[in-house]
Design a protein around this nucleic acid. Structure first.
Lengths: 166, 166
DNA sequence: GCTGAAATCGCCTAACG
DNA sequence: CGTTAGGCGATTTCAGC
């Protein structure tokens, strides 16, 4: 991915599309202050260069019947690269695991899981995760309530940072 | 929000828009097997009833210069409702905190944070989070590498579940 | 080179059956 | 829910800075 340096218009485009991914191109062009054709070209470039990975509808998981959200801390017996990769591949295959991040410190991975109910999650826990090879320790934390869940990145910090270095 | 029961077409629409939020309505209609106008009507209803909360471009945080991602476990001194709410409100105001979830167990909250570099995060940690009222304990875990980060919900589990109960 | 203007094409989105 | 139809946005082409 060629790190084609972004100008202010590019960053505005990214911020606008992060806030509303279904905005029409003419609306987007108006907001960033250029006409539609160059705006669309910039969007295409941002997509091709990987700055925009995709567009997703933000679906309300609770309304759809996913009542349970759980963070799972996982420790492995072996931290050899092959074993780490094997565990990551397993997580990618489990659809109820939405996120898997490798951490520093005492715990090796944190998983964010979603399930329709507790029994579905429990059967995943005992039937899949705990029986997976190389898993040494598992600690689960149920989400009691969500206070904030913003997708994407804080563009205000980026702008603040750029103005400081200008 | 009137829980207008979703049929199979509605669920397909949600799954498709979660996978590609910028899909045109005619493409969406083709995929779910109906013509464009009723498809658009369904989408509008799903938006109005809150099943679709919004649409967002998935921006690559690393490409944009956000090199640091951290999970923060926070314990509070008082778990009185007013104090919990106050902490949540503070998290919502911190733009580098992208997620804040209240948990069961020994730790009260988990935060997912994003920052351009470690020093930016450290100054948030010492300057904002640790000095906030009612904060008793803070434990941070840096993300070494991301293995999976899927937005949204697993529709395959939903369909599997519905077919079992049919 | 990149932007803007014009023109074409396709989509969105009413109204009606 | 489908069809029709009019208006608007998307997207290419081309000229100008």
């Amino acid at each position: 991915m060629a790190q084609h340096r972004l100008d202010e218009i590019d960053r505005k485009i990214l911020a606008e599309l992060q806030a509303d991914g279904r905005m029409t191109n003419v609306e987007l062009a108006k907001r960033v202050g250029i006409s539609a054709p160059p705006c669309l070209r910039r969007v295409r470039v941002l997509e091709e260069q990987g700055f925009i990975r995709g567009y997703h509808a933000d679906v309300d998981s609770r309304a759809l019947g996913f009542e349970v959200q759980v963070f799972v801390m996982v420790g492995l017996q072996s931290q050899a690269e092959a074993d780490l990769s094997a565990f990551e591949a397993r997580c990618r295959a489990w659809s109820l695991v939405r996120e898997c991040h490798m951490l520093n410190g005492e715990v090796d991975f944190i998983l964010k899981c979603v399930a329709p109910d507790l029994s579905t999650f429990q059967s995943f826990l005992t039937g899949d995760l705990l029986t997976a090879p190389n898993v040494a320790s598992v600690k689960t934390s149920l989400v009691i309530r969500g206070a904030k869940d913003e997708p994407g990145v804080p563009f205000d910090i980026l702008e603040e940072r750029l103005s400081r270095s200008a």
